[in-house]
């Protein structure tokens, strides 16, 4: 290279700060967590006790099962609600209004996380808007218990991920070249067949990416289950935070967090395999 006036140090001077930051404040803490998860809470000796506790204690197991169930339900419902919506925005809404329609559809995305969950609590509370509407209209005699149940957690999550998925699926549908649709029409396919055999398969990889993102973000979230679901049934992030906050048991919290990470990684491997099959 002829353009090496300040020597070979410059490129390193450029990339080192970012690398160092990542090493010191991300890699090192993560390794510290791994080490800590292998030590005993009381005396600090090396042990697998924390991991064993997870497999021995049914209530810890239960939190993982709850997390997987809630996250799967949320992912499926969100995709099923968002896909037709994104399709309507991309195909039915006139092009000049599409941008506005989309911006509107993701506007509440910008509410703060904590505030969004609180807002759902307002809506779903014992004497909140939904229950007053239901009892006021005479449909129900007694208010429904929604807040502090799994249903509330699911509703709060679905709200957020419908917006996220609408955005990604919309982008996906818009990327499809119109010639696919024309070709299908030329070959005699009606709108339904075109959708089922052309549009849907072509957008499936994008849906998988969105679904996976939903899964990862939902399973690691503490706010939504804590505010909306309450403490009646615990999800993994709640269990982890409980070890930190109430009990100060960092080794166990670390072990639980690492187990959760392993589960997410397995989900990623399963998902990426599925994606590859779809593409070939």
């Amino acid at each position: 290279m002829s353009e090496s006036q300040p020597g070979r140090l410059l490129p390193w001077a450029l990339v080192t700060p970012a690398l160092l930051w990542t090493l010191v404040f991300f890699v090192l803490p993560f390794l510290a967590m791994v080490v800590l998860s292998l030590t005993h809470h009381d005396d600090g000796r090396a042990t697998f006790e924390n991991y064993r506790q997870f497999f021995d204690n049914p209530s810890y197991w239960r939190a993982m099962v709850n997390s997987l169930q809630v996250t799967s339900i949320v992912t499926v419902i969100s995709v099923l609600l968002a896909y037709p919506f994104a399709w309507i925005l991309a195909e039915i809404v006139p092009p000049r209004l599409q941008r506005l329609a989309l911006v509107l559809a993701i506007l509440p995305f910008w509410t703060s996380y904590v505030v969004r969950s609180y807002s759902w609590l307002l809506v779903l509370a014992q004497n909140g808007v939904v229950n007053q509407a239901l009892t006021g209209s005479g449909l129900f005699d007694t208010p429904l218990q929604i807040a502090n149940t799994r249903a509330a957690t699911v509703i709060g999550f679905v709200h957020f991920f419908v917006m996220l998925l609408t955005l990604t699926i919309f982008a996906n549908l818009k990327q499809l070249s119109p010639s696919y649709r024309r070709a299908a029409a030329d070959l005699g396919a009606g709108p339904v067949r075109t959708f089922l055999h052309v549009i849907l398969p072509l957008t499936l990889p994008g849906i998988m990416v969105g679904a996976f993102l939903t899964f990862v973000l939902a399973i690691g979230d503490y706010i939504t289950p804590q505010i909306l679901g309450g403490n009646n049934e615990l999800l993994m992030p709640q269990l982890i935070m409980m070890q930190i906050g109430r009990r100060g048991d960092f080794p166990l919290a670390s072990a639980l967090a690492i187990i959760l990470m392993v589960v997410v990684t397995i989900a990623y491997i399963v998902c990426s395999r599925w994606l590859k099959i779809e593409r070939t």
Binding site: F25, F26, L28, P29, F30, A32, M33, L36, G220, Y222, P237, I240, M241, I244, F250, A253, S254, A257, L260, M261
Partner: peptide, 10 residues
């Protein structure tokens, strides 16, 4: 959560 916990430990 994991990033925050790791930093808290360190």
């Amino acid at each position: 959560l994991i990033i925050g916990m790791g930093l808290l430990i360190v």
